[in-house]
């Protein structure tokens, strides 16, 4: 297994006014899995993703990535780890406005001092796949929200990380762009065996993955596994579970 979470708790606020968002989550993700976390708005999806990806720290519990407890890791090791093994796609795009689309995407490669020809090749591959190759000379202020999101995704994929964390990666995309991004993720997952952990509230997006974990009231409510089923029937089951949990239809 590549990610293992043991009894994760996370609360916000001070002593007098505490809210416990995660109340004890146990989760194991095998290498090469594509897992989606779903749940109502405010159920703690983003919080869980942040905690698992070393961006936020837990209140109690442990997160092991490849048997290393990242809750105990030194800053330097963590940085090294993010550099080599992790890729992030965010709800907010987190692009540098001062750099072109291409420069933004190549950022992870440039800090690893990848050869120019190799970087060029990777860039062409990823950006064509996400349909942003023609935008490479543009600045973030000159492109649309969906294009920004794809740029941010391309940056997460370019160094072929072991694990990709994605928070609502299709939030700003129309259905066509969304499906091309999700296909790309699925393909990365298949081809180079990247592990993907994605947060979404969109059942269609979730149906691309192999496993869906539902959060409710700070705990794992249920887990669905795609198995040998078609994407279609998996989608239906996800919809059913969502309506059981409730609150989904009002979420946008």
């Amino acid at each position: 297994m590549i990610i293992q979470a043991k009894d994760i708790k996370k609360s916000y606020g001070n002593k007098r006014n505490r809210t416990e968002v995660l109340k004890g989550i146990d989760l194991t993700i095998e290498a090469g899995e594509f897992v989606t976390i779903m749940g109502a708005s405010g159920s703690g999806k983003t919080t869980l993703l942040n905690v698992l990806s070393s961006i936020d720290n837990v209140t109690s519990g442990h997160v092991y990535i490849e048997d290393q407890d990242i809750t105990q890791l030194k800053e330097k090791k963590l940085a090294d780890f993010r550099k080599k093994d992790l890729g992030f796609v965010f709800q907010e795009y987190n692009l540098l406005n001062t750099l072109t689309v291409k420069e933004n995407i190549l950022l992870p490669l440039s800090i690893r001092e990848t050869k120019k020809a190799e970087a060029e090749k990777q860039f062409k591959l990823v950006s064509e796949e996400l349909d942003i190759y023609n935008l490479k000379k543009k600045y973030p202020s000159e492109i649309s929200g969906g294009q920004k999101q794809r740029t941010s995704a391309a940056r997460a994929f370019i160094h072929q990380p072991k694990i990709i964390f994605a928070d609502e990666p299709t939030g700003a995309l129309d259905s066509k762009a969304a499906s091309s991004l999700l296909s790309k993720m699925k393909q990365l997952n298949k081809k180079i065996n990247s592990t993907i952990l994605m947060v979404t509230h969109d059942a269609t997006a979730a149906s691309y993955s192999k496993r869906v974990v539902f959060l409710k009231d700070g705990l794992i409510y249920s887990t669905l596994i795609k198995g040998e089923r078609t994407q279609e029937s998996f989608y239906k089951e996800i919809m059913n579970t969502q309506s059981v949990i409730g609150g989904v239809s009002v979420e946008f």
Binding site: K76, A79, R82, N94, P108, R155
Partner: peptide
């Protein structure tokens, strides 16, 4: 802030 956070996300250490 954002910029510094992004640098950390792509794996730069505090020292760097």
């Amino acid at each position: 802030n954002r910029e510094l956070a992004l640098f950390q996300l792509i794996g730069l250490t505090h020292g760097e």
